[in-house]
């Protein structure tokens, strides 16, 4: 259901910020500054909302013995450990050694290793793309194969040849494709944003 007041708020904020981008005016700039600050504070509040919602959900999981209770304990323990390290009296916040320790000992290694595993799963996904028996799948994997070969870390004339070919492919075929893609995405973003600002797409849709 559309709510005219909220759609109006989206349009007012949006047009104010857009006008500030295009027109140099001190009063407008001051108003836009308030809107930018408000958007930053909303983002901080939304972050807290997300964290609180996850915490509450996991506590409920634990309380009602549903899902993975041990997993819920790990989520809550991780959250509590980080907040206790950064918010305890005398803590320096994110630069506190206890927070740094949690980041270096747990956050970075778990996250980085998880993404490292994706090397194996991405190869599997590429093989599955071929299993679809489409010409698109063949072209996709062939493209991946060619760029992987071009990045091989060889020295000498072979390495120089691969590096030259990689540079050329980035400057011409791949670069031109990427530019088309970038312009296309920018066009779609602009059209979608313009629809929101003109009130064609309501904020609560």
């Amino acid at each position: 259901m559309r709510r005219p007041t909220l759609t109006a708020l989206v349009v007012i904020i949006g047009l104010l910020l857009l006008a500030d981008t295009l027109v140099v005016n001190a009063a407008l700039s001051q108003l836009a500054g308030v809107a930018v600050d408000a958007a930053i504070l909303v983002a901080a509040g939304a972050a807290l909302a997300g964290v609180a919602a996850l915490g509450v959900r996991r506590v409920q999981d634990l309380w009602r013995q549903r899902g993975d209770p041990i997993g819920a304990v790990f989520v809550i323990a991780g959250m509590a450990a980080m907040l206790a390290a950064g918010l305890r009296p005398g803590s320096a916040g994110t630069t506190d050694p206890a927070v740094q320790w949690l980041v270096a000992a747990l956050l970075v290694p778990i996250g980085a290793t998880l993404f490292g595993l994706l090397f194996v799963t991405t190869l599997g996904a590429a093989r599955r793309a071929l299993a679809t028996r489409t010409r698109e799948g063949i072209l996709l994997v062939a493209g991946a194969l060619v760029t992987t070969v071009l990045l091989l870390p060889l020295s000498g004339s072979a390495g120089a040849g691969l590096a030259d070919a990689a540079t050329w492919s980035l400057a011409f075929p791949i670069g031109a494709v990427f530019r088309g893609l970038l312009i296309g995405i920018a066009l779609l973003s602009a059209v979608y944003a313009a629809r929101v600002l003109l009130g064609i797409r309501a904020a609560d849709e």
Partner: peptide
């Protein structure tokens, strides 16, 4: 799976921490 839960807890805890202490 538990390590993923721990990662989620630490990452969201860190997000809350920076939202509170730096914003």
């Amino acid at each position: 799976g538990w390590s993923q839960h721990l990662l989620a807890g630490l990452a969201t805890g860190f997000l809350a921490l920076i939202a509170l202490t730096e914003v």
